[in-house]
């Protein structure tokens, strides 16, 4: 039941369930949307974050990271990201947690799938995930903050700063269900996604809730027993402060992210994704979280540029074949 790393993409391949049971997942750099209480359109993808095997850099990382295994990538403080799912159409149920807090249900990490409330994304219907599901059709963007400062969803909900990073488990559809589906849909199949010094524990980053964005987390309309829960594929993804990336890996960190203001001022577009799929309602626990800007305001009396409004003028509407721009131009 392997998970591979190939050119900064995680490839989940449940080949012992079915040769077609495969999808890939990448972490996309993006603009941090203003945390100003308004619902924003989708920002673009500005290229993949570099992913590295944790074990390749074991001698420079805290022992706890090595024990968890998996991969890691760098983020700057207050930088945003989204998760891009791509594949050939084989259905998967994918649980995503940040700091072991489920990004869809707000509950603590548990193995297996739950339907009430739904605690996973369904592929291929879900092309991407940009943040925590706080309301039906609204997420709060994933924004990186240093673990231990109280901003992350994990710290707000559990009071502890233990995990940070991202945790993923993916369950493929049962092979016999897929064969049925494939026969039924033989003519409809399509590709769906376009869209030296020891590093200290303090380099660990977690994900905190940022600004609000319009995004549907698709409700699963299939019966729960279509998913093959005996064959889950797991991966732990650590997030390392970009300032420590070079020390850990010997490779330079990516350039600091472009600001939403500069991007918009350059006349570049944002996106609105139109999907008719039904949405999960969002989690009360996640809706109760304080955003990074709200906490900064409470603590320092000022949210700095976190809440600075950006006059978005160009919004491209994209439809059933998601064409959200993914570029490495920044």
């Amino acid at each position: 039941m392997p998970v591979y790393l190939d050119r900064d993409e995680l490839i989940f391949h449940a080949d012992d369930v079915h040769p077609d049971a495969r999808f890939s997942l990448a972490f996309q750099r993006t603009l941090r949307i203003p945390d100003d209480g308004r619902d924003h359109p989708l920002p673009p993808g500005l290229g993949r974050f570099p992913l590295r095997h944790v074990e390749d850099h074991a001698d420079r990382l805290p022992q706890g990271w090595v024990t968890r295994g998996g991969v890691m990538f760098p983020m700057y403080q207050a930088e945003a990201m989204w998760i891009l799912f791509s594949g050939g159409g084989y259905p998967f149920a994918v649980k995503i947690a940040a700091g072991k807090i489920n990004a869809v249900s707000g509950e603590r990490w548990s193995p297996g799938l739950n339907r009430d409330p739904q605690d996973y994304c369904v592929l291929p219907e879900q092309p991407w995930l940009d943040g925590y599901a706080v309301e039906r059709g609204v997420i709060r963007q994933f924004v990186a903050m240093p673990l231990g400062q109280g901003y992350t969803a994990e710290e707000q909900l559990t009071g502890a700063a233990e995990w940070g990073g991202v945790q993923i488990v993916a369950y493929p559809m049962k092979a016999e269900r897929w064969e049925e589906l494939r026969r039924r849909r033989a003519k409809e199949m399509r590709v769906y996604a376009m869209r030296a010094p020891m590093v200290a524990e303090s380099a660990a980053m977690g994900l905190a809730p940022g600004g609000r964005m319009r995004q549907v987390i698709v409700r699963d309309r299939r019966p729960l027993d279509v998913w093959d829960q005996r064959h889950g594929l797991r991966c732990h993804v650590a997030i390392l402060n970009s300032a420590d990336w070079a020390a850990a890996t010997g490779s330079p960190a990516p350039q600091p992210p472009v600001s939403a203001r500069d991007y918009t001022a350059a006349g570049l577009p944002w996106y609105d994704y139109y999907a008719e799929a039904p949405a999960v309602p969002g989690a009360a626990a996640l809706a109760s979280l304080k955003s990074v800007a709200a906490l900064a305001r409470e603590r320092h009396g000022d949210a700095g540029d976190l809440a600075e409004p950006v006059p978005v003028q160009r919004v491209l509407r994209i439809g059933q074949t998601p064409g959200r721009a993914v570029t490495s131009a920044f």
């Binding site: 998970v3 790393l5 490839i11 095997h53 024990t67 968890r68 998996g70 945790q167 732990h236």
Partner: peptide
């Protein structure tokens, strides 16, 4: 190709 991919790119899962 798939055998080579499995050999060199598999992500190690740990204790979490």
């Amino acid at each position: 190709d798939h055998a080579i991919l499995r050999l060199v790119r598999e992500v190690k899962d740990g204790d979490w």
